[in-house]
Write a protein that binds this DNA or RNA. Structure first.
Length: 233
DNA sequence: CCCTGATTCGC
DNA sequence: GCGAATCAGG
């Protein structure tokens, strides 16, 4: 697979929306997690909270890269600290994103533009981006980025009653993929147990999925199908 | 162990 | 430019 424009767009969008590199890799297909990360960096999509890179006050150069490929750049008189974390937006009560499943699907999405723009805007910080990133005025950052990415619509994953349940996006090679409930239902999810090594299901569901062949002529109630059959329970 | 992202470096 | 290998924290 190669990085077509479209795939790059998808990568950007998902990266900005906070999906993990693994999830992005799965979504795109044909690429590894590493490939995604590598590409993201090459694109300049800069670091999101990394478990490994949390520090920012290296008092004594604890563990600099073993092999500094490039020598230190020129001295940078950095007056402004770089805004790694979203600065506490004054009084912004972090609106809890409550997804209402029954909400009107096709609707003019009310852009979360600053409604409280009544007051005179401050000179410096302009707005908060989609991922909570600060956008800054011209002059203190790089590319414009105005061409609103014609990002593809991707099914949002609400956290309705699914919270805590295994969604399609949670599936990995070692998670039991036995469906619970029926697709389309609000609480449809997957088993989520650890798989029986070598199988797509956990031990219990392997028992349901793989059944010994009985002697000919033996009558037996049909095994419950994962889905598609009449509702059970 | 599993997960994460960052970095390096041969291709 | 690409991404596997490696590193390192949670």
């Amino acid at each position: 697979m190669s990085w077509t424009d479209e795939r790059i767009d998808q990568l950007k969008g998902m990266w900005e929306r906070g999906l993990t590199a693994s999830q992005i890799a799965e979504e795109l297909g044909g690429v590894s997690r590493n490939a995604v990360i590598g590409k993201a960096h090459r694109l300049g999509l800069q670091s999101r909270p990394s478990p490994v890179k949390a520090n920012d006050a290296p008092k004594k150069a604890p563990a600099p890269p073993r092999k500094p490929a490039s020598p230190a750049p020129a001295v940078e008189a950095e007056a402004a600290p770089r805004p790694v974390a979203p600065a506490p937006v004054a009084e912004a009560p972090a609106p809890v994103r409550a997804f209402t499943p029954a909400a009107a699907p096709a609707a003019p999405a009310p852009a979360p533009v600053a409604e409280e723009a009544a007051a005179k805007p401050q000179p410096r910080i302009v707005s908060v981006g989609p991922g909570g990133f600060l956008r800054q005025g011209p002059g203190d950052q790089q590319a414009p980025i105005p061409p609103a990415p014609p990002r593809r619509l991707v099914p949002a994953k609400p956290s309705a009653e699914i919270a805590g349940k295994t969604s399609l996006l949670d599936l990995t090679e070692r998670i039991c993929k036995w469906p619970m409930g029926h697709p389309g239902e609000p609480d449809f999810h997957f088993c989520g147990e650890a798989v029986n090594p070598g199988f797509p299901y956990c031990v219990e569901h392997c028992g349901r999925a793989y059944q010994a062949q009985l002697p000919r002529g033996t009558r037996r109630p049909p095994p419950p199908l994962p889905f598609g059959g009449p509702r059970v329970r």
